[in-house]
Structures are given as C-alpha cells and as structure tokens.
Amino acid sequence: MSAVRGAHIAVKLANEKVLVSGGDGGSGGGGYLNTADLYDPIANTWTAVSPMNSKRCSHMASILSNGSVFVAGGYNGGYLTSAEIYNPTTNTWTNTASMSYARQLATISVLSNGKILVAGGDNGSPLNVAELYDPSTNTWTVTDSMNYARIGHAATVLSNEYVLVTGGCTANSIAEIYDVSTETWTVTGSMMSIRQYHTTSQLTNGTVLVAGGIISTSTYLNSAELY
C-alpha cells in the first residue's frame, strides 16, 4: 500500500478491486489518515485514490446498491458522526448527512430494504444505540436501542433478513436479533463464551460460525461455536 496503516477498513467493489481507507499510521506514518488505496487483484498493484474528506480510523464501511462505498464514524482524536460516500467511477468522496451519535468500532449492516443499520460502538464508553441510514433520502433515523451496550461485537445479516448481533459485552454472552420489519431488538440465546473482537461467518446452510475473540486483555480464545 502507499501508506502504513492499522485500524483501517477494506471493502470489495463490484469490479473485484478492493478499496482500503483511513486508519492510523502511528507516529512514523502520519498519525490518523484520510488516504485511500485501491488494490487490483489482476494486475497485483496498489493505486492511491482520492483521500476521504475526514481522517478516520476504526470506522465503518459498506457497499451501496449502486456500487459506491459508504463510510461512517470512526476516530481521529475525537469520535466522529460524519459520513461520506466514495464513487469509484469518478474517484470522488462526497460528504453525506451525519449520524446522530458519534462512534467508532460499531457494526454496519446492509438491510434488504436498502437501508444501513449502524449499532453500538464506542464514544468513550460502550453504546447500545442504533440508527438507520437511508441512501435514497440521505437521512439518518434513530431506531430501537439494543438491550445491551456493545463494543467489539459482530453483526450478521441472516438468511431470514434479521440481523444477529453477538458479543461485545464484558459481563455476559447474550446475543440479540434486530427485526427489520418492526425495527426492534429481541434477546436470543446466549453464546457458550463471553466474546469481544471475534469473527462471525454465515455458512451455506444458514448457520453462523462464531470464532475466537477475547474475554479480557489477558484471556484470548481459540474456541468456536455455531448459531
């Protein structure tokens, strides 16, 4: 890449190229970054593209139905509410409406109705608040809050179009589900282990594989479980 970076975001575009944005370059890499790079898997090359309008690390990103990249929140010395969209065709970033809550390390989920759900995260303390972005109207709407504040959690859009959120709570292993039609959260079964910063992967049979994570700064997990 053109810059050293950690706590950045990568998303795969419709043309199979990968956009990497932002992050933290550390004291030797320029600190918080707004730069972005595009990886071409066919040519095996990185190309610097237009920088974001805001420096941000630990932000959230997703692909919109039109192929653009939506980026929201993060941290650059302060917690961010701002959001912006990258157009791969014109190589431009455009600021959009800002979130109602500043946050980093939240989950972002693209729903079947085209809206984007951002849930939880951190703004100095863990959050349970969630909000919806509607790309068609460029508006944010606060939706039902999760039952538990979460940071380091994971979100999976299930085959039934509900959103499963797991982990991120230091005190329990309770998971919960967001119903897109009613815009409400419901507590579901608990995981076998308390987990933060784990991964989730939906398998072809519809089950969700949850793997690894941490319980505390001194306890790391190699266990996995299926939902």
Rank of each mutant, 00 (worst) to 15 (best):
M1D: 07
V4I: 11
R5V: 09
G6P: 02
A7P: 00
A7K: 11
V11R: 07
E16R: 10
E16V: 03
E16D: 15
V18F: 03
V18Q: 06
S21E: 07
G22V: 07
G23V: 10
S27V: 11
G28T: 12
G30D: 09
G31W: 08
L38V: 05
D40N: 13
A43M: 13
T45K: 11
A48K: 08
C57T: 03
S58L: 05
S62C: 15
S62P: 02
N66E: 08
F70L: 07
G73N: 04
G73C: 05
Y79A: 10
I85F: 01
T89M: 08
T94L: 08
T96P: 04
A97E: 00
L105S: 15
L105K: 05
A106V: 04
I108C: 12
A119R: 02
A119G: 03
G121A: 05
P126L: 11
P126T: 13
N128C: 07
V129A: 10
N138K: 05
G152D: 15
V157L: 15
V157C: 10
G167V: 08
G168P: 13
Y178G: 04
D179T: 15
T184S: 12
M191E: 02
M191T: 05
I194Y: 01
Y197V: 14
Y197S: 14
T199C: 11
T200E: 06
Q202M: 14
T204C: 10
G206Q: 09
V208P: 06
V208D: 12
A211H: 09
G212M: 15
T217E: 12
T219N: 08
L221F: 09
N222I: 11
E225A: 03
E225T: 08
